[in-house]
């Protein structure tokens, strides 16, 4: 009797877990399914779930028509550029803030975390217009710093605070400058933290939509903007649309699968200490 109850409990729990993860499975598999079917099957009723036979035509379509490669290249430049710049200035800043215990300065960075990205766009848009920089990728890279710099600084502060200080102090006693202590002692130790910061900054920059939507011209669109434009201009061409959507989000999904541990660590550390 007790065994039976145990079994029922386990089945119930298994069902609950399934209900929790089913929506994620449904959306991603449906995206995949739409991208592998022809237009006839995509608009069939009842819906066709398994592509039969699967076709890659939608993917061919995406690459053939929409300057997709150019937009992918733009996205790569913007995300890598904004992440790299954020690391160069954000890692030392995280170190300095952790050393000075200047948490009030750090709180200023939080303002960027809690306000909508949209609110930065009006002044920056006017500024870039005045500087005649619209039409290049620079405005997009620079505005993405609004996202990447706070992520890097915040992750690095909590990381450097957790590092033992004995080694650096030993280096300082031995006559190293503080820059050398940072460069040769703290920085190598901070590599795991830098990995976390890099991954998170890259993902959030890659996923960002609103900055490029306002600032990008025809030639400088990033992938999320390009994909959104596809929706506006071809209402019911679901196959290519899903193929493009999947291609846009695939890099971050793969990154999430590979670096799940770092992402979870970064988000929870940044989150718990962050607010």
């Amino acid at each position: 009797m007790r065994k039976l109850r145990r079994l029922a409990e386990n089945i119930g729990f298994g069902l609950a877990v399934f209900v929790l993860i089913a929506p994620a499975i449904l959306v991603f598999l449906w995206m995949l399914s739409l991208s592998l079917k022809n237009e006839l099957d995509n608009t069939a009723w009842p819906p066709v779930f398994i592509p039969n036979p699967p076709t890659l035509n939608n993917y061919r379509d995406v690459f053939a028509r929409n300057d997709f490669v150019l937009y992918a290249w733009n996205s790569i430049i913007v995300s890598f550029g904004a992440t790299l710049l954020a690391l160069v200035i954000g890692v030392p800043a995280g170190y300095g803030i952790a050393k000075m215990r200047a948490m009030r300065a750090a709180a200023l960075i939080l303002i960027a975390r809690i306000t909508p990205g949209l609110s930065y766009l009006i002044p920056l848009f006017l500024l870039f217009q005045w500087l005649e920089m619209t039409g290049t990728l620079w405005p997009i890279v620079i505005t993405h710093l609004v996202i990447t710099v706070p992520i890097v600084v915040w992750v690095m502060i909590s990381f450097f605070e957790g590092l033992p200080t004995e080694l650096e102090e030993a280096a300082l006693v031995d006559g190293a400058t503080i820059w050398q202590a940072f460069r040769h002692v703290a920085l190598p130790l901070a590599r795991p933290g830098i990995t976390v910061a890099t991954i998170l900054a890259f993902i959030f920059s890659w996923n960002n939509f609103v900055f490029a939507m306002v600032l990008a011209g025809r030639e400088t669109r990033t992938l999320p903007v390009a994909v959104n434009n596809m929706l506006t201009f071809e209402q019911i061409s679901w196959g290519p649309l899903s193929a493009a959507a999947l291609l846009v989000t695939l890099p971050v999904l793969l990154l999430t699968l590979l670096a799940q541990k770092q992402i979870v660590a970064g988000l929870t550390a940044g989150g718990v200490k962050g607010v």
């Binding site: 679901w238 959507a245 999904l253």
Partner: peptide, 28 residues
């Protein structure tokens, strides 16, 4: 199961929104 569960959080919002738009279609 946990990996699958956290995937939506990292997915590109625009890409996901497009798929939802298609899933919300009243007829199809």
């Amino acid at each position: 199961a946990r990996t699958i569960f956290i995937l939506p959080m990292m997915a590109t919002p625009v890409a996901v929104a497009l798929v939802w738009t298609m899933m919300f279609h009243p007829q199809l």
